[in-house]
Design a protein around this nucleic acid. Sequence first.
RNA 1: GCUGGAAUCGCGUAGUGGCAAUCGCAGGAGACUGUAAAUCUCCCCUCUUCGGAGUUCGUAGGUUCGAGUCCUACUUCCAGCA
Length: 369
Amino acid sequence: MLKFDIEKRDGLARVGVIHTPHGDIKTPAFVGAATRATVKALTMEEMRNLGSQAILANTYHLILRPGAELIKEAGGLAKFSSWHGPTFTDSGGFQIFSLPDVRISENGAKFRSYIDGSKFEMTPESSMRDQWAIGADIHMAFDHLAKSENYDDMKVAMERTHAWLDRCVAEHERIKESGLVPEQYLYAVIQGGTFNDLRAESARYCAKKAVDGFGIGGVFTADGMAGMLQTVNSILPENKPRHLLGMGQEPIDLFDGAENGCDTFDCVGPTRMARNGSLYTLDGRINIKNAKYTHDFTLLMPDCDCECCKNYTRAYLHHLFKTDEITAKVLASIHNEHFVVTVVNKIRASILNGTFADYKQSFLERYYD
RNA sequence: GCUGGAAUCGCGUAGUGGCAAUCGCAGGAGACUGUAAAUCUCCCCUCUUCGGAGUUCGUAGGUUCGAGUCCUACUUCCAGCA
């Protein structure tokens, strides 16, 4: 069982430590999205320097290239990527269900590689085997995402996710008992969309399973998220960590998530925003490509102690983006990733010292005007 | 000096008798939440009450119902020959 210590609680919110074979994660924590075993535009050294505690890679992308077995041969995801710290893998369910030509059955999903057209089939069992081969500390169960926000589609997706969870747990246990691999852990994934009754049902179902933690999936908008998380996290057992899948582009998601009992987050938003020139500041996101920054010789965000903000002006960053220099994306990614990691770290500190509500209010008021 | 060729929105281009007129770049703005995202969308002659309205394709004439497209002259540029 994955060891998770809770140091302090404040309502549903909690401060804790997840002890993984590759090190501790002080929670709440923002986990870097390293889909193809890299955080786009950043080296692992830069990720460490900006304060990241863990990364999350994607099983779907990695089985297409370079293949799960190659990562196993390299000694696992942490060693292969030189991250060396705690790692997660997402199951690939999210990607597969967004593919145009995918054939889904009770057994799993059939699809073709977008790289060379070769045929693939992903099942709960294959996802578990691939995740064990990739060797992240924490795996996500292979889940089924609904085709629409429609209630009936959501219910079908949730029920299939539950059926697949049982198969994931069985396969996970089977591999674990073979005793031939290092310690790895499994999170169940909760579905149910925007429907609280389905979310509650999904949480109750997953809560009973022999898993090490929970991923909360299928959230596409912050609307209603806080209430949904209250429902789900009130049901889930307290002593296991909860990961909010894919949310964290908007700072309010991080506050709402932590406040309502989520321990870790991952999101591609910060680095994608960065590559597209949208940079976080305490006063909201700015588009550094805008003409008004041409002569702005102030630092990007003076209150920030990342490598970008300690050294470079807005005018310089503007210039790098306008000339499409690679360093534009590097510096912007360092900043945005540091920004969200730091926000969550400060949320942690504020829960510890009892100032969370004040911190949340003052941050959000300034950020969103 | 002669002979050919070319002049189209900031730049480069498409357009050879019937759309303010193609595409790219540059420029302006927006989007992005478990990443097939170094991506995508919109605007980009002028004015606009966003329905339209006006003025355009080196300059000046001409032919034609109609000209960026045909004819003449001029101007500028390019190539070749002197």
